[in-house]
């Protein structure tokens, strides 16, 4: 595969990694790494990042490899569901791995719910992105028509003297992802509940800080999955908006026509890029919360020792 193609396919991943690492160095400076379930959380988030990075490369493999069309079709179609499928197991370590029960020093007389350790900003971000996905899914679904195979994945524009058509993120493509993001929402709620439920440790301040970090990590995983799904949807809509056709009129004059939302192509491309880079950066950041940020003082000590 030529280097230029590899660069085109991988630069968003590299940008996400750089953004995630930069954010980790700035935001987590001086903070302790996540205490409970740090290894499984880092491994699962790291694997999710790796799979998302490899997916576009595998999608471009037909350019160099000869393989059945069905295999590549399935691989390319999986781009809508893949982030959501990866997000579900990436949430598990935060829900399943729980702190060892310690002798309780007493009970704090305040309710602990799934909201107790989660900042409202995360909730707003999750609901905002979900609303955007829902809106785009409904709009694209309503605009879709059955294609030759009877699948609601065709967007056609009739110009009287002819019609043009292209694939759209219609009901055919959005059904499985819609079920998956409902599952992701339920899994996020369950994870946050599991983080909040156990009794607080006698070392209360450290325990509360750790639960805030684990709740934020669960929100980061869910938001990352939704943003990566949004990227796939918006990119698909951008590709649909590029559809054009040339027709001949009654006076033998030919004209070109496109989709009613062709003016949005640039904005859709930009939105897809931003959503994709941000989504993957959130997963990179989550994997890194298991690691202590190297401090300048520690680096200096190591240099002196050696």
């Amino acid at each position: 595969m030529p280097w230029t193609l590899l660069w085109i396919l991988l630069w968003p991943t590299l940008a996400s990694i750089l953004l995630g690492v930069a954010a980790w160095l700035v935001i987590r400076r001086g903070a302790r790494p996540v205490l409970v379930g740090r290894v499984p959380a880092a491994v699962v988030a790291g694997i999710a990042v790796l799979v998302m990075a490899l997916h576009p490369v595998l999608g471009a493999a037909p350019l160099r490899l000869d393989a059945p069309t069905e295999v590549w079709r399935t691989l390319i179609d999986s781009r809508f569901a893949l982030p959501l499928v990866l997000g579900l197991p990436a949430l598990l370590p935060f829900a399943v791995v729980r702190p060892r029960p310690s002798t309780t020093a007493g009970a704090l007389l305040a309710p602990r719910t799934w909201r107790s350790f989660l900042s409202s900003w995360w909730l707003c971000a999750l609901l905002g992105v979900l609303a955007l996905i829902l809106g785009l899914t409904l709009a694209a679904g309503l605009a879709s028509q059955p294609n030759d195979a009877g699948e609601y994945a065709l967007y056609a524009v009739d110009f009287g003297s002819g019609a043009i058509g292209a694939t759209i993120y219609g009901w055919h493509y959005s059904l499985v992802p819609s079920v998956l993001w409902v599952l992701l929402g339920a899994a996020t709620w369950w994870t946050l509940t599991r983080i909040a439920r156990p009794p607080l440790d006698p070392a209360q301040a450290a325990d509360v800080t750790d639960r805030h970090l684990r709740s934020a990590n669960a929100a980061r995983i869910a938001l990352g999955a939704l943003l990566l799904h949004l990227e796939a949807v918006v990119r698909s809509l951008a590709n649909t908006s590029r559809m054009t056709g040339s027709f001949s009129g009654s006076d033998d004059l030919s004209f070109s026509a496109g989709t009613p939302f062709s003016a949005l192509t640039g904005s859709l491309d930009l939105l897809a890029q931003v959503a994709g880079v941000l989504g993957l950066a959130l997963w990179v950041f989550t994997a890194l919360t298991a690691v202590t940020v190297p401090s300048a003082a520690r680096a200096a000590r190591t240099a002196v020792r050696s």
């Binding site: 009970a107 007389l109 305040a110 607080l200």
Partner: peptide, 27 residues
Amino acid sequence: ISGLITTGRLGRGERLPSVRQLASDLD
């Protein structure tokens, strides 16, 4: 709990933990 309420340390309308949470916390 009644001591905290009558001395004003728990205010009017403040929510208490669920039965299950308090029982689990106090073992």
